[in-house]
C-alpha cells in the first residue's frame, strides 16, 4: 500500500508545526514531514509528494502587514529554485489534484488572504473574506465551544455530533465578508463549518468571551465547496489528548481530544481517495 503523507510548512514565524505533525501521525498518517519554507523554495521538497498540507498557527512575518499578509505575498510571488515555476503553481496543482489543505489560525488567515477560501468556481486566488482584529482589541488565549454545521461539505468534520471544544489563540480572528452576497453564498453552501457557541453547542453566539472575536455570524471555520480545503481559527492540534483540556483534572474525558477527529478524517479521506 502507498504511504499517506502529510506535510507541515514552517518558517518565517509559524509556531505550531511540531504539534500539527504530531496530530497528523496520531490521526493515522504514515508520515508527517515538517518542511521549512526554505526547503520548498530551494526545490528540495515538493508539495506534489504529499497528500495533506497543513498551514499552521504562528505569526508569519510577525503579522507586520496584517496577519499572514506578507506570507501570502511571498507564496504568490516567490519562485522555486531549479524549475520554471512559482511556488503558487505548486499550491494550485495540489488543489487541482484533489488533495487536502487545513489552515489553522495563522494558516486560516493565510488561506483567506491568498484567496484560497471560500474558493468558489475553482478560483483559489481571489480574496473575498478576511480575518481581522478581535473586537476586544487584544490577543486572546481561551477555550471555545464550536457548533458544527453537519450539512457542511467539509471532509474534516465528518462524524462530529454537535460540536467540539478547542482553544483559540489569536489577536486577529474576526471573520468578515466583502459583501452580503458573499456571506449569503457561504451560508447557502454550508461553508461555515464551525461557529462559536454556548457549552451545549445549541446556539451560535456573538457574546464575548464565548465568541472571542466578534466574527460575523459567529463563524470560526470555513471550507471550500469541495470540502477538501478548510480553515479555522481554533486549534485542533492543541487538543488531541485529554491532558490538554483545561478541566481534565475534574472531568471524566475520553483519551482522545476533540481536535483529533479532523486529522483522522483527513487520513481516512487520503487513504480512500488519494493512494
Amino acid at each position: 500500500m502507498k504511504q499517506t503523507r502529510a506535510i507541515v510548512i514552517t518558517g518565517n514565524g509559524t509556531n505550531c508545526e511540531m504539534e500539527a505533525a504530531h496530530a497528523c501521525r496520531l490521526g493515522g498518517f504514515d508520515e508527517a514531514v515538517i518542511a521549512h519554507i526554505a526547503e520548498i523554495l530551494s526545490g528540495e521538497i515538493r508539495l506534489d509528494d504529499f497528500h495533506f498540507l497543513n498551514l499552521t498557527g504562528g505569526f508569519l512575518d510577525g503579522d507586520d502587514l496584517g496577519s499572514a499578509k506578507a506570507q501570502a505575498n511571498r507564496l504568490k510571488n516567490a519562485a522555486v529554485v531549479g524549475c520554471d515555476e512559482k511556488l503558487v503553481e505548486q499550491f494550485t496543482r495540489f488543489i487541482a489534484d484533489g488533495k487536502l489543505i487545513l489552515g489553522v489560525c495563522n494558516g486560516f488567515q493565510l488561506m483567506v488572504k491568498m484567496g484560497m477560501l471560500p474558493g468558489w468556481d475553482g478560483n483559489y486566488l481571489n480574496q473575498t473574506v478576511t480575518l481581522t482584529h478581535n473586537d476586544c482589541g487584544r490577543f486572546q488565549d481561551r477555550w471555545t465551544y464550536l457548533q458544527v454545521d453537519s450539512s457542511s461539505p467539509s471532509v474534516f468534520t465528518r462524524g462530529i455530533d454537535k460540536g467540539i471544544y478547542l482553544p483559540v489563540r489569536h489577536g486577529e480572528g474576526k471573520f468578515l465578508c466583502d459583501s452580503d452576497a458573499t456571506l449569503a453564498r457561504i451560508e447557502d453552501g454550508h461553508l461555515a463549518v464551525l461557529r462559536y457557541s454556548g457549552a451545549d453547542y445549541a446556539e451560535a453566539t456573538m457574546e464575548f468571551p464565548a465568541n472571542p472575536n466578534g466574527s460575523t455570524n459567529a463563524i470560526a471555520a470555513l471550507c471550500d465547496p469541495t470540502g477538501r480545503l478548510m480553515g479555522l481559527m481554533p486549534h485542533p492540534e492543541a487538543f488531541v489528548h485529554y491532558t490538554q483540556h483545561p478541566r481534565w483534572t475534574r472531568e471524566e474525558l475520553p483519551e482522545e481530544g476533540d481536535g483529533l477527529i479532523l486529522y483522522k478524517n483527513a487520513a481516512e479521506y487520503v487513504r480512500n481517495n488519494l493512494v
Binding site: 505550531c16 511540531m18 504530531h22 490577543f139 488565549d141 481561551r142 489563540r169 492543541a238 490538554q244
Partner: peptide, 13 residues
C-alpha cells in the same frame, strides 16, 4: 489571557 500559554501542545496544568 493575552499570553499564548498552550502553543507547542504540551500544556498540562
Amino acid at each position: 489571557r493575552r499570553y499564548d500559554h498552550e502553543v507547542q501542545g504540551g500544556s498540562v496544568v
